[in-house]
Nucleic acid binder design. Structure first.
Lengths: 367, 367
DNA sequence: TTGTAGGCGTTATCAG
DNA sequence: CTGATAACGCCTACAA
């Protein structure tokens, strides 16, 4: 900057103003500065600037690397994050693996914030036993949880109405005539999985269905666990006429087992999932009926809330619940031995409705 | 720091030494400082420290978000990165999406480096048409490309011997007795895909196989494209007895189509993939014979090289080629109408060999 | 619209 | 082993 100031006969401060996009600089002066900057290959030293501004320019994304990096969930979430925090915003994402203990108990994340290495934190799909949220809350870190309803209730978060999703799926199956409906659980480290199961139990109770207890099988979101559950369910007696799983991966695995057992989908058994994140698979399984979780939108909104907080200096707060919608495809249909209420072909009747967003407490989006 | 200095009756500099882990501080002095620091809730301001040290503490990871975030490749790569650059290393990962134009032509990445926002860059699986490598090369940025052999030859990189992988797979099939071997290509934006195809053509030529041209089908690594190719190949006349695909996803899709057509694997058709990254699927397809690509190891090594460069100040250089190995599982076997040379059951004969690493030019690893 | 003086929190240098 | 002083490159406050 000194060099440019000398070259142009101005002061460092004026040069500084140009690069800080201050509007109290004469256009001609700005030109002169920019010209000299180009000539001298000058580039702002963000280290110095940020040091001065007491900000890092980084937004931390905390997540369990191995748990979710491998899957469409993260891809969708990042799409949303990037929509909110684009290239121009001057913020960059920093990645933190909450798998490590130091991260998990909050020590490391807290330290990073205190040390000014991140300006704010987006927490993606934390586990229910993650302790760091509590730690961070005390620190008054600008923090937004995306994809989960944190147990620590005062933490700002964006998640979705899992219960509604299961309800929609189950009612869809019920109205097709299904009564023997089975369920494959998700891992209990995720509150979402627990909520989904709870909603299923509630559905059973509401409809007065008295299915055998083995109609509810454990699962951990993995293909392997889906297959295991599928084998038990489909070879049981009497087998369910419909199987609802806690995520799409397990639903596909169930379809795989069904096909292996020579069962047609949906003629012999209906299968429904949860998430609607999987790419429509290559055509060797019927497209999946599933509850659509607006991950991208949740992420985008969460990032916007955080950004807004960073700009205003007001800590983020409040919860946003987004509605899950039902996407009916070809893996569900009328059960064999039943006269269902609906027509047998339900092809591609899409009921997605992304604008179905419920704002409980929220500052306006900065679109 | 001033506060601590006052409290302890020392100088700022001495306090500084304590936190910089300098060993020229008396133990008792260090104790006093740390005690005061705890009492005053002092935490080093990394912004100031890094400003002074002219480093950001961030390592950039440049990749095409949507292209690869959704899949096991990134998960593996990050596992490797983290092995090399752990929590203790004081480096954090920053994420850059090379999908955006500003990143693609290198402007943004270059700017980030000049602006001191990243100390070095790991480029994950770039496309052949990515322009940023050239730009960055000129800037003398500490940079390592992982998972691809860059066209710009002087760029430091860690990739694998794709050709060898295809060769191993093809020879395995050939020795089982297969002659009508088909191939599903990968997208030409990846040089890896081109190398794999080239290796396949070389294999055909070497064995003097004269298969119809439609035995080579286009693909883009997606499940959808795999299915499309599978349908054409398996319904063709004469159909191939074995199908080699450019990645595992497409191989699974081909298996799906095969099962849909009522073909048994490997009795009616053998299928082999490339990558060995997919979780062993839930048991509804036979476990896949595939070429194992040591993504995690490549990433780890790449990150080590970069770290080493950052510590020594010497720009990274040289190429490391890691060998692909063959993992034989149950999706390949002796063709129906042929008397293969080998036994029909080749179950779980694993030939993985991760230590098969070839160092062409390289500084020693900092284990 | 531009300039002056001073400060941000750390480390480097060199002396003791 | 410890200390005094200056420097890093930018920004804020206030003055002109």
């Amino acid at each position: 900057m000194d060099d440019i100031a000398r070259e142009t006969g101005l002061t460092k401060k004026t040069v500084s103003r140009v690069f800080a996009n201050s509007n109290l600089v004469k256009a001609s002066t700005r030109e002169r500065v920019l010209e000299a900057a180009k000539r001298l290959h000058y580039e702002v030293n963000m280290l110095a600037r940020n040091f001065n501004l007491k900000r890092s320019g980084y937004i931390g994304i905390a997540m369990h690397y191995q748990q979710i990096l491998d899957g469409p969930y993260v891809a969708e979430a990042f799409k949303g994050f990037r929509r909110a925090i684009s290239d121009e915003s001057d913020y960059v994402f920093a990645l933190f693996d909450t798998e490590s203990e130091s991260c998990n108990n909050g020590t490391k994340l807290a330290k990073f914030y205190r040390q000014r290495r991140v300006d704010g934190i987006l927490v993606l799909a934390p586990h229910t036993d993650d302790q760091f949220l509590g730690t961070l809350k005390q620190l008054a870190v600008p923090l937004v949880v995306v994809g989960e309803k944190p147990t620590c209730s005062s933490v700002c978060s964006v998640f979705c109405n899992d219960g509604l999703g299961i309800e929609l799926v189950c009612n869809h199956l019920y109205s097709l005539g299904h009564r023997r409906i089975a369920f494959v659980e998700g891992p209990s480290i995720y509150a979402v999985a627990i909520r989904r199961k709870k909603a299923f139990l509630h559905f059973l109770h509401e409809k007065g269905l008295n299915n055998p207890s083995w109609y509810i099988q454990p699962g951990d979101f993995s293909s392997r666990s889906g297959s295991a559950a599928g084998e038990i369910l489909l070879q049981g007696n009497p087998p369910p006429t419909a199987i609802v799983t806690c995520n799409d991966t397990m639903a596909v695995a169930v379809m795989g087992i069904a096909q292996k057992l020579g069962l047609r989908i949906p003629e012999d058994v209906s299968v429904a999932g949860f998430d609607d994140l999987l790419p429509l698979n290559g055509g060797y399984f019927p497209p999946l009926t599933t509850a659509h979780q607006p991950v991208c939108e949740m992420a985008e909104w969460g990032a916007r809330v955080l950004l807004n907080s960073l700009q205003t200096g007001v800590l983020p707060s409040g919860k946003t619940v987004m509605d899950v919608s039902l996407t009916i495809r070809e893996s569900t249909g009328v059960p064999k031995h039943t006269n269902g209420a609906s027509s047998p072909k339900q092809k591609k009747l899409k009921t997605r409705n992304d604008s179905d967003v419920t704002y409980e407490v929220q500052q306006p989006p900065v679109h």
